[in-house]
Design a protein around this nucleic acid. Structure first.
Lengths: 248, 248
DNA sequence: CGTAGTTTTGATGTCAGTCAAAATGTGTGG
DNA sequence: CCACACATTTTGACTGACATCAAAACTACG
């Protein structure tokens, strides 16, 4: 997914508001841009980093998309997440300073390389950056909790629908269509991510397609009725802010 | 679970090394202790905080144990985690400043109340505390990833065994027996946490018991053969540091 | 004791996994 | 541009693990 040139720096980057610079003053953004190293483009199936590697940098997707996964000694693997432009990779390494996942490019792409040592320096100089880091870590945790709920308590159909809606929403945030997009991952990756088999993914997509709710053309997805799709998982919505009145 | 008096302050607290003060100098620990408010004990089934509430403090379990969960509009809920002494609750709120889970006491317990505003001040003064916060957030993320793998790719038996081993390990870290402990949560909570039904939990425990690997007496669990238990899930171990030699 | 809550046990049903093969797509070299 | 090989996706038939439904056994607490 092409979005912004590999050479663009933070102050001019269209992704800035979705990324680390959000909420910073322009001169602070410039300081941040000063520590960022642009990496040469990655080819499809090229590793960005390997599970177990020492983490010296965080990476933000600039263009393309990535898949992170954990490998097990028996050869099996679990896909932990997909990353679109503006999203930060490597936060899983903060506990011991080593990546707990591997990250691999799903298509040709590029990333911003943010050296951790210099990011830490900058965080102690710029309070707003510190706060933004905390927010991003909080978002990572909240997103992971959503995945836990998804995997623990949803049917195959609900998993697929949630997956499509998650992508739709993220593409929308990037300014793309929320109803028409191409999947950059294989069915196998989707299945593994959702704790399903490829056959089940295929069948569920076929069924949604037969009902006319979506149109599937290989990797191409078109959502014909967004509300109908949301209705399938509406009962899953969290109680959130209505909680007070119910529980107290 | 009784561990340390509700009134003990950080420098004297037996949990210090498992908690925020880890790695700090003694005078830094004293500063930290200065901002902590001790809360009155909580009764079983008493809420510590509610999903949607504004998060003004983080909480560390001092004694007892807690369960966090997300409620859905259809009345169902998902248990997100269990918290033992020394463990930090509330990190899920960092994105928007509101709790995404509710937290409830499983038994009589007490917590340390750490006001966020004062913690932030202290973090900018004490670099080591800042680093420790990052490590704790990293651990939260890594732990959540483990849960994602557990829920996405494990059989009922593997889920139960992993659950028991996780508890065993955490009790061990607290200085308690790794082979004999009481579950503070109901079967329903375990089932919900693991994405299973109580009947399945009951049957799996019964089977492990029949095989002589564990002994179950209501809430009391005794692990008779820790290695046999670990063997059931050994193939799940992550490749981790051997990854380099395999993949490169 | 007696009632309510929790856990266990048993019988049956179903959703998603497994196995197998066909269909479709993708890339490479002639 | 086509032909062939290989990878990916779809479809179908069958199986099995876990859920569901139902009832009994156990525990706790007034």
């Amino acid at each position: 997914m092409e979005f912004t040139s590999a050479k663009v720096s933070c102050p001019e980057c269209r992704l800035a508001d979705l990324c680390l610079p959000y909420g910073l003053h322009i001169n602070e953004v410039k300081q941040l841009a000063g520590i960022i190293k642009n990496k040469r483009p990655l080819a499809p199936d090229e590793y960005l980093y390997l599970q177990g590697d020492e983490c010296q940098s965080l990476y933000v997707v600039k263009s393309g998309s990535f898949r992170s996964f954990i490998a097990h000694i028996d050869g099996s693997e679990q896909t932990m997440g997909f990353y679109l432009p503006g999203e930060l990779m490597g936060l899983d390494s903060f506990q011991y300073g080593r990546f707990t996942c591997s990250s691999i490019a799903l298509e040709t792409g590029s990333v911003c390389d943010i050296p951790l040592s210099r990011l830490n320096e900058l965080c102690s100089k710029i309070p707003g950056l510190q706060i933004q880091m905390m927010r991003i870590l909080g978002k990572e945790i909240a997103d992971d909790h959503e995945k836990i709920v998804l995997l623990g308590h949803r049917s195959a159909k609900e998993k697929i629908v949630t997956f499509l809606l998650m992508l739709s929403q993220r593409y929308g945030a990037l300014g793309f269509s929320t109803t028409e997009f191409n999947l950059s991952m294989r069915r196998q990756d989707i299945a593994n991510f959702l704790g399903l088999t490829i056959e089940t993914v295929s069948r569920q997509l076929a069924e949604l397609s037969k009902q006319g709710i979506i149109t599937v053309k290989q990797r191409g997805i078109q959502i014909n009725d967004l509300n109908l799709l949301k209705a399938i998982i509406e009962h899953c919505a969290t109680q959130s802010l209505v909680a007070e009145s119910v529980l107290s």
